[in-house]
Design a protein around this nucleic acid. Sequence first.
DNA 1: CCCTTTTGTTACCGATCAGTAACATTGCTT
DNA 2: AAGCAATGTTACTGATCGGTAACAAAAGGG
Lengths: 220, 220
Amino acid sequence: MPAPKRKPQATATADPQPAPVRVVHRAAEAQAQILAAVDELFYREGARAVGVDAVVKRAGVNKMSLYRQFESKDALLLHYLAGREQKFWAYFEASLAKHPGQPREQLLQFFIDLSARASQHDYRGCPFVNFAVEFPDPAHPARLAVAANKSRLIARLQELARHTEAADAEALANGLALLIEGAYAASQTYTPGHALIKALPQVAKCMLDAACGPPTESPP
Amino acid sequence: MPAPKRKPQATATADPQPAPVRVVHRAAEAQAQILAAVDELFYREGARAVGVDAVVKRAGVNKMSLYRQFESKDALLLHYLAGREQKFWAYFEASLAKHPGQPREQLLQFFIDLSARASQHDYRGCPFVNFAVEFPDPAHPARLAVAANKSRLIARLQELARHTEAADAEALANGLALLIEGAYAASQTYTPGHALIKALPQVAKCMLDAACGPPTESPP
DNA sequence: CCCTTTTGTTACCGATCAGTAACATTGCTT
DNA sequence: AAGCAATGTTACTGATCGGTAACAAAAGGG
């Protein structure tokens, strides 16, 4: 609970400490700057490589201001992944929103958008994949956030696949999930701007076609 | 050049230092133990997370024995990746050797074997992917080894794809490459033993079928 | 105005990082 | 046996890691 402590509710009278409804905007401000710095640095340079000193320097705050809001670097990692979880689903649903009620086009659109995002020079792959690589110990608390993201992803893919005409929705979801992870990994290993990432939508389309039959069978 | 220095050739007479053709088996022995420790530790726990102290402890040698053979930790990284390069192609060609002259079955076999390998509890993904994640700076000398591995891989896939009956060999190779990277990433993010990795051969087969037509069109 | 709580700042902790200086010991060669 | 080069060992460097103690300044509320 990184939010600054407040009185429970100011329970009327009979209270020795008189309801400290402080302003504390300084703390909230520092917290926001810290989280912004964390999000940027952890993603760009890696959570393991970035120390708290680099974070406070980037955030423009003092180290004690950080440790008064967050109990440890691990807490920062949790906040970082929580923020990335939100951001990921925002991307995901934004793609889907472009073709309401058309699950097949929705899925393809996600790959089109992912391909574009992964082609940007500052793209550093999937924060969850990167975290799992940087922290091999599956018992690390933040690894739960990684597992949760991926389990929600495969569930969502299965749900969308079931709404297509695919004969085997499970298999289609598995294929698409592997393709997504493939784009994440390939964006880091293949030299930037490689044709692989640009070919992602084509490959996804091919997979969708193979699972559902020819593109869109609309009666003429 | 981590090999212990020897005399150029012992150039006959007229030489102040008399041809030190030493045995040096101690150094070679230490070097082998160091490389074995490096290979294990860097892969299992991550190259960034493992310090040279951990390496020398695991190798059972003294730290100076390490620094007399290798000039820096970066040199160790290079050796590590070079060894993994060899190991990877050994795996790859071993799969292909199971179906000589049948490029389609060769490709599928690789996915079958990769799926099995990636299902083992101690599998930690692709060393090259992991390295790229742990060392985001593309200018890092060892990143050349990563790029080289992937560029050889895609070239090899294209070569094999061209020998199948696939209409678009390039597209097939791209799809398979993305699938391979996907298996690497998914093996680390999805909870161990997830159905995704087991489904890898099925997905690969589906992709091959879509590209080449039904399994093996042998005239009856 | 006084008092309490939150802030900002500095200096520090022990642990670990990659890498090395210095020296004792071994083992081979002549 | 003498000498030299390769070893083994210890202790150390300066930098950085995550995290904290202590204290001064400030800001709010009664």
